[in-house]
Amino acid sequence: MPVMLIAEDDEDIALVLTRVFKRAGMTVLRAADGVAALELLAENRPDVIVTDLGMPRMDGWELIAAVRADPEVARTPIVILSGHLRPGDPRAGSAQCCAILLKPCPNDQLLATVQELLEIGPHDHDSSDSRCPAEMPVSV
């Protein structure tokens, strides 16, 4: 059973996300901020992380940077799910996340994104042979 870590400070959104992923057959871990998410990450090694950006103590940007800096978990797929992202934010292109979804995001789109990342599995985010969807060339 895949293990999902949700870093989300809004209790209502976290409950909905938990329900969506549990119904899809996943084990769900929840953290209200990046610090708690890092603690759960170290203990449980989830298969995918879904993070908000605007959280107390440690925001989503800092969480992503901390995950990518830790060789033990750096290859974990990360999805940003946030309403705090502004158009043209330069951090989006360099965050080394696998997908960026804006709230409100349809549950089926979020689930499809996570399932694609589960199929890909752990992968690099800084090399030319990365399997990360965010780094794959787009065909026109």
Rank of each mutant, 00 (worst) to 15 (best):
D108V: 03
N44D: 12
S94H: 05
G25M: 10
T113V: 03
D70Q: 04
V138C: 06
P71C: 04
G54Y: 03
L15K: 10
C132M: 04
P133Q: 10
A42E: 15
M58P: 00
A134S: 09
T76M: 06
V3P: 10
I49E: 11
C105E: 07
Q96T: 05
L5N: 07
A65R: 14
H123G: 13
G88R: 01
A112M: 06
P133S: 08
Q109T: 13
V16N: 13
L15N: 15
D89N: 06
P46G: 01
L15S: 15
Q115N: 14
E43N: 11
L53S: 00
V114T: 09
E72L: 14
L85P: 01
L17G: 04
V28S: 01
A24Q: 09
C98M: 01
R91T: 08
M26I: 01
P133L: 00
V138I: 11
A36N: 06
I78L: 07
T76C: 10
G25R: 12
I6W: 08
L15A: 14
S94T: 14
F21L: 09
C97R: 08
R75A: 15
I100D: 02
D33G: 13
L81S: 02
A24S: 01
E135P: 01
L110E: 11
R86Q: 08
L101G: 02
A134F: 00
A112I: 07
R23W: 10
H125F: 13
R131K: 13
L102R: 07
P56A: 09
R75D: 15
P133D: 00
S139K: 05
I100E: 00
T18P: 12
D126T: 06
C97P: 00
A66T: 12
D70N: 15
L29V: 14
V35G: 13
R91E: 04
E72G: 10
L81Y: 08
P104W: 02
P133T: 02
E39F: 10
I13P: 12
M4Q: 00
M58R: 13
L5G: 12
D124I: 03
I78N: 05
P56M: 07
V138S: 04
L110D: 10
A24G: 13
R30Q: 15
H84C: 11
C97D: 00
T51S: 15
A37W: 13
A99L: 07
P77S: 07
L117W: 04
V20Y: 08
R19L: 15
E72D: 11
P87Q: 07
D52T: 09
T27M: 11
E135C: 03
L17V: 13
L5W: 03
S128P: 01
L85W: 08
D10K: 11
P46N: 08
G121M: 07
P122C: 10
E116D: 09
N44K: 12
R131F: 02
L118I: 12
V73E: 02
D10G: 11
V138P: 09
P46L: 03
G34L: 06
E39P: 04
R19P: 03
D12K: 05
E39S: 15
L41Q: 13
N44C: 14
K103R: 10
I120D: 05
L41G: 14
K103M: 02
